[in-house]
């Protein structure tokens, strides 16, 4: 059959670059990035992160064709920086951003499990809770978490 292989969606073939930069010939400080094997998930998020940078004048993306698994991202910046530099910043910021989300979620997860566990106990002495939570937190991270996966 002539159906394309499904893994073409996300496996980068040999010799193909993940990212290519084409500077714009007509607009100053503008470039087009072509990112292979990525979709709206990353493209839309990058667009958002780029727009939050005051030095970005324009950021937009499109997926030219649903059967081609790449997107193009157009960026124009102020003269004191370059599109590539701004994109690098945006990626760093996204990683930090999402990393801090992960930390916050994990803390909340432990807290939630702790209070589920304490739901039956009638103790309202906060020092007591504080003390035991500390042990629970340690226990959760060193025993429960690694053991969770069988």
């Amino acid at each position: 059959m002539n159906a394309p292989d499904r893994f073409e969606l996300f496996v980068l073939p040999d010799g193909v670059k993940k990212l290519t930069i084409t500077p714009d010939t007509k607009i100053p400080n503008a470039a087009t990035f072509k990112v292979e094997k990525e979709d709206h998930t990353l493209a839309n998020m990058l667009r958002m992160q780029l727009l939050e940078d005051p030095k970005v004048l324009f950021a937009g993306y499109k997926m030219p064709h649903p059967l081609d698994h790449y997107f193009i991202l157009k960026v124009q910046t102020t003269p004191d920086t370059t599109p590539a530099h701004v994109l690098g910043n945006a990626l760093t910021e996204l990683i930090q951003n999402v990393g801090s989300m992960k930390n916050k979620f994990e803390v909340k997860r432990v807290l939630f499990c702790y209070f589920l566990l304490c739901n039956g106990t009638s103790s309202t002495i906060w020092a007591f809770h504080f003390f035991f939570f500390f042990f629970f937190y340690l226990a959760y991270h060193f025993f429960l978490l690694p053991g969770k996966f069988y």
Partner: peptide
């Protein structure tokens, strides 16, 4: 998500 961003970031640095 972090891996995705890191991959593109590496590719950007390699291209530059």
């Amino acid at each position: 998500l972090m891996d995705k961003c890191a991959q593109v970031k590496r590719a950007l640095q390699a291209t530059l």
